[in-house]
Design a protein around this nucleic acid. Structure first.
Lengths: 215, 215
DNA sequence: GTCAATAATCTTGTATACAATAACTCTGAT
DNA sequence: ATCAGAGTTATTGTATACAAGATTATTGAC
């Protein structure tokens, strides 16, 4: 619903970057992009500013803007940060979530389970994100919630990869149930611990995957 | 060291916003700013994009960009988030900081103490930030470190206000010493707890101040 | 053949021009 | 006096123009 062409282009470019259409270090050529989007350089430049500010690209004055895909080390750091932020959300949510929100969480969990039984991976990814977002919301801190969603968004592509590990889906579901129970009990510490582990293992799985690919 | 005028302007505007030169809802007039900075609208617009992307201003298409100062509720949320992020940094730092880093932390703490004895508030603020930044660094996660620094930066102005509370400086120092000791002991849980409290109390003090001003 | 230096080309950053929409003003009717 | 509506002015968003620095190509010396 953006009126500004520049905003639409920024969104599209963001999607393309997340989708891995660009390699790390690729230069975003203003003229080529302008041609591609059928606009002048002006809206392209404004879109590039957005990418740079949000950390997805780097700007070198008089040289251009270059996309910056996180390397293995940065990805691990991001997963660790995500794990800790989720743990924080869980800790707060344990004492703040309403019964309604807990029911919504249980529903989301059920839908995850259904998606697995239907072998509908896309739907599982989607419902899984919903499950976690309900917890962010449950922390009753919209600033924190925004931060969590932002990071979740940035890690989406990599989360998908690691979820393909054999047996991971089943284990992930059992962790979900455990988390749900801790939240129901209002057990802040255990919720935090469970969520931290639940997300941190994703980083570890990803690490394993990277290591196995290197060989 | 920016070559781009637009970047310099973005920095300046950011400073001005943090310094409270603008009221919430103020429109940033492109023409006036262009005149003020002796440039055309182009670099101004690129600077405004940066402010909008980093959340300091809101853009309404075809209407302009309006600065968004956080209200009391959002500030409390930001302080709470800061407290939790610092706690996370502390938890990780407890098992990851080198002896060198611990010594640097002790030095920073000493300099805080000296600044207080010299009644040099500006220097205290500065050294205090250093103290905390060493802990962020100690978490050995540069992504997390960047996030922490960013939030620290956004809350700077408000932290200054609340530190004026009577007796707060002394108490703050004793908390620092406690945190340092927990880090030395490698006690992750207690470091996290102490840091969370240390920062959370800032939010509470700020809240008290707001409430007293409302009357 | 390789390297350095200079010229030509490209690309970025800023300024200006123009089109479209929003805000404002002024008039006239009730 | 108040409100509606047309016309005017302002402001945004995009396109184009131009200047300056970066990149590439070319030429010439060794």
């Amino acid at each position: 619903m953006d009126i500004r062409r520049a905003d639409q282009i920024a969104d599209t470019l963001e999607q393309l970057v997340f989708a891995g259409e660009f390699q790390d270090g690729d230069r975003l050529d203003e003229l080529k992009l302008a041609e591609q989007f059928h606009v002048s350089r002006t809206p392209i430049r404004e879109a590039l500013q957005v990418l740079v500010t949000s950390g997805m690209a780097e700007q070198i004055p008089r040289r251009g803007v270059f996309i910056r895909q996180p390397g293995p080390v940065e990805l691990l750091e991001m997963f660790e940060t995500m794990a800790e932020i989720e743990a924080v959300c869980g800790r707060l949510a344990a004492t703040r979530m309403s019964d309604q929100e807990l029911d919504a969480l249980a529903d989301a969990n059920d839908r995850c389970q259904q998606a697995i039984q239907a072998s509908d991976h896309d739907r599982y990814y989607s419902e899984n994100e919903t499950f976690h977002q309900i917890i962010y919301r449950g922390a009753a801190n919209s600033f924190l919630e925004k931060q969590a969603k932002q990071l979740q968004n940035r890690l989406r592509a990599y989360r998908r990869i690691q979820l393909r590990f054999r047996g991971r889906l089943r284990q992930s579901m059992s962790e979900h149930s455990e988390i749900l129970q801790f939240l129901r009990d209002g057990d802040a510490d255990n919720t935090a611990r469970a969520l931290r582990g639940h997300v941190a293992v994703q980083g570890e799985k990803f690490h394993q995957l990277m290591a196995s690919l290197k060989r």
